[in-house]
Each structure stands twice: as structure tokens, then as C-alpha cells.
């Protein structure tokens, strides 16, 4: 039987491509919700010893990453009724192509790092690298502010993979603190966005040029 972790990681990689090609915000949110769902259940299949605490922690992560944050952003964009376009600086096809190149490059480079792969999981590091870089790419290449927040979430997913995949040291209470920070961060971003929408009547960050220098 194939390893469930590898299958999950392949799904994550596909979700990256899907996110880079999504033109409409609701579908982008759905893709990120799916990605959060998959990433947060990876630890269950890693073969680590799980005690009650870590199972509860994984479940809470799962709920927050897969449902709470996406739902909150979805409600936020409904309320401000903004344009549903991701409004890219780099086009969707070019983004997709870059995403593919990124995945190939990540897979090609990763073995050179010479890491003690956790139980021979060759896709773990490439996936994490892809998520972080693709997240940063989304932030830089989309003008719509919500798409930027989603890019930030993708980056956080990648970092979560690094944390769960490679180091067992970070205690759960600490991971939980990190999760709460991310949650609060996204919420504050959404609140600011609603105010920006009122002030500028747009969430297009190209209009945020008052303070340009």
C-alpha cells in the first residue's frame, strides 16, 4: 500500500497549482481551505506516537485551518461585497507555469540539503518549500488584498509542515500559541480590510499609494 503521507503531500502540491490558477476569490478560498485541511491531518499519519494532547491539538488545528479561518474570510468578503477577481500582476497561466517550475526545482534541490528525512518521506521538504515560496509569490503577484491574506495563509501552511515534519521538539502548547497568533493575525487583517474598503471603496492595493515614497 502506498504511504498515505505521500498521497496527502501530492494533494497539497496540486492545491498549490490550483490556487495559482484560481481567478475568483471564492474558489481561491476553497482551495486554501482544502489545503489547510490536508496539511493539518498530515501529523496523524506520520507514525509519531500520539497521546491525547497531541490528537486534540491536531484536531483544533484542523478545525481552525480548514474551517474557521476560511469561513471567516468568506464572510468578510461577502460583507464588503468586493470584486471577486484576484486581479493578478502576473497572469494565471504564467503563475501556473511558475508553480510547476517551482515544484520541479524544489524536488530537484531538496535531496542536496542532505537532511535526515523523517522515515524516508522524500516529498516532505519539497512540499514545504513549495508552499512557502508559492505563498510569497501570491502575496507579491496579486493586487487584491484578500488574495494576499490567502497567500500569507499558504506560507503558514508550509511552515507548519516544516514544524510537524521535521522537529518533534516544539511542544504542543507552543504550537498552539503559534496557531492562535496566526488566527488573530488573519482576523486583524480582515478587520483592516473592511476599513480600507470603506475608506477607499476598493480592496485593490494598487490604490494604496497615498504613502508612496
Amino acid at each position: 500500500m502506498t504511504n498515505p503521507v505521500e498521497t496527502l503531500l501530492v494533494l497539497v502540491l496540486l492545491s498549490v497549482l490550483s490556487a495559482l490558477g484560481s481567478s475568483r476569490l471564492p474558489s481561491l478560498i476553497k482551495v486554501l481551505s482544502f489545503q489547510g485541511l490536508v496539511v493539518s491531518i498530515v501529523p496523524l499519519f506520520m507514525g509519531h506516537e500520539m497521546n491525547t494532547g497531541s490528537i486534540i491539538f491536531t484536531l483544533v488545528t484542523f478545525l481552525i485551518r480548514a474551517f474557521a479561518i476560511p469561513l471567516y474570510i468568506y464572510v468578510a468578503i461577502r460583507r464588503v461585497a468586493i470584486r471577486r477577481e484576484a486581479n493578478p500582476i502576473v497572469g494565471y497561466h504564467a503563475s501556473l507555469l511558475l508553480g510547476l517550475v517551482l515544484i520541479v526545482a524544489a524536488i530537484a534541490v531538496s535531496p542536496k540539503f542532505n537532511l535526515p528525512m523523517p522515515q524516508g518521506r522524500p516529498l516532505m521538504l519539497p512540499t514545504a518549500v513549495t508552499l512557502v515560496v508559492a505563498g510569497m509569490f501570491l502575496i507579491m503577484s496579486r493586487r487584491n488584498a484578500i488574495a494576499m491574506v490567502l497567500g500569507y495563509m499558504m506560507m503558514e501552511n508550509g511552515i507548519y509542515l516544516v514544524g510537524t515534519g521535521f522537529s518533534l521538539r516544539a511542544q504542543h502548547i507552543v504550537e498552539f500559541g503559534i496557531l492562535l497568533d496566526v488566527l488573530a493575525g488573519v482576523m486583524i487583517m480582515a478587520v483592516i480590510l473592511q476599513h480600507i474598503k470603506q475608506a477607499f471603496d476598493s480592496l485593490d492595493t494598487a490604490r494604496l499609494t497615498t504613502l508612496k515614497e
Binding site: 510569497m136 486583524i188 487583517m189 483592516i192 480600507i196 475608506a199 494604496l208 497615498t210 504613502l211
Partner: peptide, 17 residues
């Protein structure tokens, strides 16, 4: 003010990344 929201947005996004 509009400018202060812009500043906050930049602050939160850049610092979070």
C-alpha cells in the same frame, strides 16, 4: 483616516510575512 489604514495594512502584512 484612509492613510492610517493603509499604514496599518502595510505594517501588518509586511511584518507578518
Amino acid at each position: 483616516s484612509a492613510a492610517s489604514f493603509e499604514a496599518t495594512w502595510k505594517y501588518v502584512l509586511i511584518c507578518s510575512v
